[in-house]
Every structure is written in C-alpha cells, then in structure tokens.
Design a protein around this nucleic acid. Sequence first.
DNA 1: CCGAATCCAATTAGATACTG
DNA 2: CAGTATCTAATTGGATTCGG
Lengths: 112, 112
Amino acid sequence: MDVSKEDELCLISIREALKVVRGKWSILVLTLLSLGPQRFNQMRRNLDHISIKSLTDVLHHLEQHEVINRQVFPTRPVTVEYTLTDKGRAYIPVLRELRIWGENWGEHPKLG
Amino acid sequence: MDVSKEDELCLISIREALKVVRGKWSILVLTLLSLGPQRFNQMRRNLDHISIKSLTDVLHHLEQHEVINRQVFPTRPVTVEYTLTDKGRAYIPVLRELRIWGENWGEHPKLG
DNA sequence: CCGAATCCAATTAGATACTG
DNA sequence: CAGTATCTAATTGGATTCGG
C-alpha cells in the first residue's frame, strides 16, 4: 500500500462527495442556487448554454441525493422553484473556496 | 438579467475554476498529490481503477494548466514524479472542504 | 517503469418536437 | 412555464499493444 490508512480515508471521503456532485453542471447549478431560489427556465438563462435535457438530468440527480429541493406552486402556468436543502447548503464552503481559487488562478486575470 | 452583477462574477469565477479542474479524475489526482509526490504507476494503484489513458490525459491537462509538475529522474528504468505547483497547492482548501462534506454527507455513514 | 497510439464501448450533452 | 421523449453528436473512458 502506497498511502497511509489516514490518506485512504481522505480519498474515500472525496470519492463519496464526487458521487453526489460531479461534472461541471452540478457545480454550476449549486452555485446558482447558493445565490437564491431559482426556477427552471430562469436557471437555463443564467447557465447560458445548458440544454433542457442536461438541466433536467442534473436536477433529478441532485434532488435524488437530497441536495436540492423541488417545490411546485399551483399557479397557471405552473411555477417550480428549486432551493438548496441542508445538505446542499453544507456544500457552500466548497463553492466558496472554488470561487476564490477561480478568482486568483483563473485564466482571465482580474482587471486592475 | 436574473442575477446581479456580483452574482455574475461568482459564476464566472466558478466557470474559470472548472475549466482547469474538471471531472472526478482531476479531483482525485489532486487529492493524491496533496498527500505527497507520486509516480505514475503508484497513482494508478492508489486510484484503483483508472486506466492508463485516463491518467495520462488528466496529467497532461493538469500539467498544461500549471497545476502539477512533472519531473523526470534519469534512473533506469526512468522515474517520473508528479507534484503540486503553487497553483495546485492553492487548490488544497477546496479539497479540504470537499473532504469534510464527503465525511459528513456521504453515503457511507461514519462508523461509530 | 513510464508512457504513446489505437480502437472501441460507454457516458454525457445538445437539438428538436411535443405535453399539461 | 416546466418539463418528457427521442434521436444524434460529442466527449470520455477502458483495453490492448507497443516503444524508450
């Protein structure tokens, strides 16, 4: 074995996390919801070029893993609002660190 | 526009970060290297079921984005060691938060 | 030991049309 | 508005073979 028992636990935890939140869309959806509740087409606009299928797929996945919440309001036409669950809000520190890293090390240097 | 100017900047930073570190393999490779230098086949063993192609692909990608460093030692047979760059080490806080989340909210509950 | 190169399978993403 | 269903395109991943 090349890594210690403790290191192995670290890898396991990361793998666990990646089972739930994986791929760029998941992260971006969670980022958007961390800024406030969003409706379906509202997210489509804010995420720019995501397809209907990709968005529905990732929303289903995140909802099944209880990271986001789907609430239907019986207006006409119907309104559906997505929000973060406790589990989802607990992910915000990850997003925060990721944002910091992107700001400091991303391709586009910050304009002075 | 549905999100504020400030929120838009947040999304942009996240997108920037995702251009460099994306997919489960990148994260796992960085996690492994955050624990110490690693050689090619050593990483293959520690990452369990990653294929040669997937590993070389992700290592190239991360090296091109200056997140990891590749150093060749002229032994026989040759030894190649991968380490984190400054940019890569700056990513460790993201990994740390991700690990914490995985520990607390992953599928396998912590054994009491 | 460290890969490059090739081929093929599987997963993911987009476009489009249609529904309540 | 908020999707479902379907089809196709593109990306990614694995298996294998070969070379320095």
